[in-house]
Design a protein around this nucleic acid. Structure first.
Lengths: 299, 299
DNA sequence: GGAATAGTGTCTCTAAGACAGTATCTG
DNA sequence: CAGATACTGTCTTAGAGACACTATTCC
């Protein structure tokens, strides 16, 4: 861009310097990406009148090699030397789901020394949101042991300890990943310490059955981010099919936020994000519902 | 944690596998941390009646080697093989400022292939907030060419292009870093594309004088994050001294948010985050102001 | 008294919460 | 008609915005 012919202490120009540059012998960490691919699925309904229940689902892969052989893990892989981290994430996403061009966002980079027993691995986590109806290819086509798991998360305990110059707030969160075959449960301990002005947060796993590496922390982080962003952005529409009812949309909000919303207030709030169509649901044991689409041109 | 004596396709247990594990010959990227260390400083006042103006400051270091020799860059360095990313960030912070135990937060990991002309470098950026009054050691003690720069950022242009299935929103942001000796200006182009359901964001530098690497993007990202977090967390108090007036606090909010606030509403809003003391400012050419401290035990 | 900042009282406006009430489908 | 969901009207409440007004210091 902007390289002046300045010379360094050895009298080299930048060009000369780069030609002679030796990347050195320092040992380097491996870098991987791990993908948190979420979607929303419908459970089959048992009562023709009732609406089918929805749930938030996460894609996991059963490990076929050591370490954590036989356990479940987030899809992921190494970032190769000539691809950007984002490209690596997109590649992983495509390998697992066969879809391209969907919403993806970098979450956090996990860099503890001991997080992989093989060697030093730094992992950059990404979250992707997929509309279940466009997922024509089932997870599992590619990796024989990929499966969707329903995600539930629950704050089971809160402890507040007063310190001289502040406090420590401890939260115990239980995360459950389950489907017809398998059920994994893990517990995360999240502490926020305030001492004087200084605020520090720390998360650790206090028990995780069947989920490999530190992936439980990644799941917890992703849920938190998703919750946060759903309140002040439109990312939720990445989880919705092109046409949806407002009740369906409200359910998805409720699942992610973990609380019930009032229909009237909800409709007022999302009114601008949504455009009504002339279509309606049919064949349900109750009043049909108008179908809406995402109003892309909001504001 | 949870290692059953399962054997893999080669009949190895996890223990045996790890003993024989060869980290392989794949070329690995180098990983660095880059620190965005912010503080708030007072400009000297010219009128004894007026309050001294404040500004947001960022610490930069003048590069002594190629590449970008002579240009300014964020403080940072390599993550060594046996330290966590966060430890590396803390170490860098300490080397530059001689302070420990201050607010620090991971921002984003920059992984484009060509971001460093020497070799493949992935950089994890962290933001730290420092109270200027505890910075007894001047930046510059350690690295001879460290300096604080006043940060200003301005949205200079917004373009919205309608697409078939959405739109593209382009924002041109000018960032200026300046102090008595030096003034650096750069421009970032941020685009948000919405196509159907898919929302993508992308930032690129369209001009940067004197700031090395992709550091302008990091600065822009950090400002955005700071702005966002200031609205819904208490991180701003990391920039404040132990005792401060509400007017001072309001100024800091105004600088970060880039807009003026109304005093009455402001005071109502932050009332719970703050505890009044019996002390007052003195020797100003106007009514003294009560001093407050951060109310750590809020809620 | 003038210049400046500190601080409060109160009206308005907007959006969220609560909830009752109406609408409309199927078996 | 019963059972279910869809949708609306409206009262209440909380909080942000606006702005005028009072308070207090130093020179």
């Amino acid at each position: 861009m902007n390289k002046q012919p300045i010379t360094d202490a050895q009298g080299l120009t930048e060009e000369q310097f780069l030609q002679n540059y030796d990347a050195g012998v320092y040992e380097r960490p491996s870098v991987t990406v791990d993908m948190l691919i979420f979607t929303v699925m419908e459970q089959e309904q048992n009562n023709y009148r009732k609406l089918s229940e929805k749930s938030l689902q996460l894609l996991l892969i059963k490990r076929g090699q050591h370490p954590y052989l036989g356990q479940w893990a987030l899809p992921g892989g190494f970032v190769s030397i000539n691809e950007s981290i984002e490209d690596a994430a997109r590649r992983e996403l495509y390998t697992e789901t066969n879809i391209d061009n969907i919403y993806m966002e970098q979450l956090y980079t996990w860099g503890d020394v001991e997080r992989d027993p093989r060697m030093r691995v730094i992992s950059c986590s990404y979250m992707a949101l997929v509309d279940r109806t466009t997922l024509n290819v089932q997870a599992g086509d590619d990796a024989a042991d990929a499966a969707w798991f329903e995600v539930t998360h629950q704050l089971v305990e809160t402890n507040r300890t007063e310190l001289e110059q502040g406090y420590e707030l401890e939260k115990i969160i239980r995360i459950t990943l389950h489907n017809e075959q398998t059920s994994l449960t893990g517990t995360v301990r999240h502490t926020e310490t305030v001492q004087g002005h200084v605020r520090k947060a720390h998360s650790s796993i206090i028990g995780s059955e069947g989920l490999a590496f530190d992936h439980l922390l990644m799941v917890q982080y992703a849920i938190e981010r998703l919750r946060g962003k759903v309140e002040y952005t439109d990312i939720i529409f990445n989880l919705m099919p092109p046409l949806f009812t407002l009740s369906e949309l409200q359910r998805v909000y409720e699942i992610i936020l973990g609380k019930e919303l009032l229909a009237a207030a909800f409709r007022r709030k999302i009114a601008d994000s949504v455009t009504e169509t002339d279509e309606y649901t049919k064949d349900a044991g109750h009043r049909p519902s108008r179908l809406y689409r995402y109003n892309v041109n909001k504001e």
